[in-house]
Design a protein around this nucleic acid. Sequence first.
DNA 1: TATGATAACTAACACGTGTTACTAAATCGC
DNA 2: GCGATTTAGTAACACGTGTTAGTTATCATA
Lengths: 348, 348
Amino acid sequence: MSRTTVSLVLNNVRDIKISPATRQKVMDAAERLGYVPNAAARALVSQRAQIIGLLLSRKSHHISTDAFINPIMQGLLDVFRQHDMCLLIDIVDPDHTKEAYIQLARAKRIDGILFSGPRLDDEALKLLEVDGFPTVLIGQLPGTKLCVVDIDNCAAAKSAVAHLIRLGHRQIACITNAQLTYSAAVERLRGYQCALEEAGIAYDPALVRFGDFTIESGYEQMRNLLAGQTKFTAAFVASDTLALGARAALSEQGLAVPQDVALVGFDDLPFARYMDPPLTTVHLPVSDLAHRASEMMIALLSGDHVPCDRVILDTELIIRESCGASHTSTVMKRKEEKEGERIFRNNL
Amino acid sequence: MSRTTVSLVLNNVRDIKISPATRQKVMDAAERLGYVPNAAARALVSQRAQIIGLLLSRKSHHISTDAFINPIMQGLLDVFRQHDMCLLIDIVDPDHTKEAYIQLARAKRIDGILFSGPRLDDEALKLLEVDGFPTVLIGQLPGTKLCVVDIDNCAAAKSAVAHLIRLGHRQIACITNAQLTYSAAVERLRGYQCALEEAGIAYDPALVRFGDFTIESGYEQMRNLLAGQTKFTAAFVASDTLALGARAALSEQGLAVPQDVALVGFDDLPFARYMDPPLTTVHLPVSDLAHRASEMMIALLSGDHVPCDRVILDTELIIRESCGASHTSTVMKRKEEKEGERIFRNNL
DNA sequence: TATGATAACTAACACGTGTTACTAAATCGC
DNA sequence: GCGATTTAGTAACACGTGTTAGTTATCATA
């Protein structure tokens, strides 16, 4: 019984004639010995590592509180499992070696890259495009030909702020989710500006602050806003994580939400509905994003024609109580939330 | 100029004579071509994949809200980066193929396994032990010889509950962080029981509920407790994530924290200090856990003698306001938190 | 100049698999 | 009974690297 026979049997190669007896003998032996083909040898000959890299483009210390990562990972693994793919994770921190992830690609340690949260100033990303390395962006990047799976951050943010305007607010503060090197932060800020403009409200930089992914930054920036001269009756915080910190800063100053300051978040993280008051926020279809991204990657790798290289998923404005638009009684509010929540689809 | 010369130069092999001119020529060419040695070929010949697997032992849908994972990943990557190691992530869900992760090991796709949150009924783990595969548990497992990095869940839980007792509470409810198939859940429950026992309080199963990692389960189980006949004035929720849900259930019923029900959590997740009121909780040195675990793995792989195969890190009870022991004014509370927080070291 | 030592480089093997081309045995058609 | 076809199995190469042993050129020494 040769090595070849074993390979043929274990890989279940079609249209090949192996007697059932031999086949069974091979299976038995493999089972008995706990034999599993060596991944490196297999990768070497097949030119496929069967590993996809998920690259998180943000500072290392921002990973801890990033609630976006987990559902993405879960979604990816769900799909990968069905294709015998593995998931490798790495951080792309501008403070580290710039081309670290390019090396992963060139060494063929990974077959493809899912790139989350691209930065506008990431030069290495362009290298990937030149190399023609299979890449899917989770998030957008102006002027790239790479595959993209994302939401319309601008439209989503606009709908959130428009909602506040609809409720009568004119002085609306904004805290971005991150610095403007991150494309999502730029887009969400732009949505804020668009909503103001459409309502004929002048954009006032004194009401805008820049966060950096963390709860702390939400807290600090809200304190900063409150310490400023310009008054506001509502705030759009472009990340639920930061909204949590912002709310803490508000109640620390004795300000009630939504009575004194109406609050709207972004992301609809799991805790948003359990905040006090429950947070009005933009729902991000994180799970869908992950599924679409991973399926696009699989298609890219299998050489199939990729039908659409630009997927923009719908978001929804989930209206809870932090914006002051909900009027269900406090006691029963959460019980009826599913019915009580009003949803505005942003991309119809 | 042969392939061998290139290999020698690029790997910076010591005690080998290569003329500076040749050396430079090699470096230049590599730079120009963007050459990076093929990982699979390297792994095949060196018998090292340079990849460590982080295995998350919990149900797939519990990954989303598990705030423990991110800081662990961050800590691991910090250490791995210095050793040219990569991080591969996978979920060990009892509903999937049991031996999926054993295959990763046998295929030598990964050099070692960091196993987070071992379940008592995981049979495959014993296989790893038999195989002698480099493994470090993050969390404990009775009767294993594997390396362990963990905290003393029992002592930590005990100190939290003892604190409530010290404040005068006698009817103390408990919601576990997970089902009792997870060793950490068992230990935390045991800590709760020990504290009661030492104070001469009878253990009442009517005051105990079992969570499952999610905010929802905290919410549901607290509602369940409140709907029960047995009254309580305090609750120990063995996970901050669940505590968030529990607090929502309390305020939904018009119960104030800590006036009506004192609350103590576990984990000291980033949001704990920003809850309203700030959550008294047990601080888990997550970052340390990750560092110690990864360093232990590196030592294991380098064949060094591993000095200690069982590292138990200290926890601290962080006293904020949800337990009713803090008396700083509400307005200034967070500002003075760092000084105002009282800390009890659990393992001296 | 002959001898040995050293510097600089290379040919050849090993790693464990997938795959192709080939051989031997068995079966079939007439 | 004999060539043609099908069935079952194998030898040999390729994948891209690290490494060992070996081969020239260069140079110092007696």
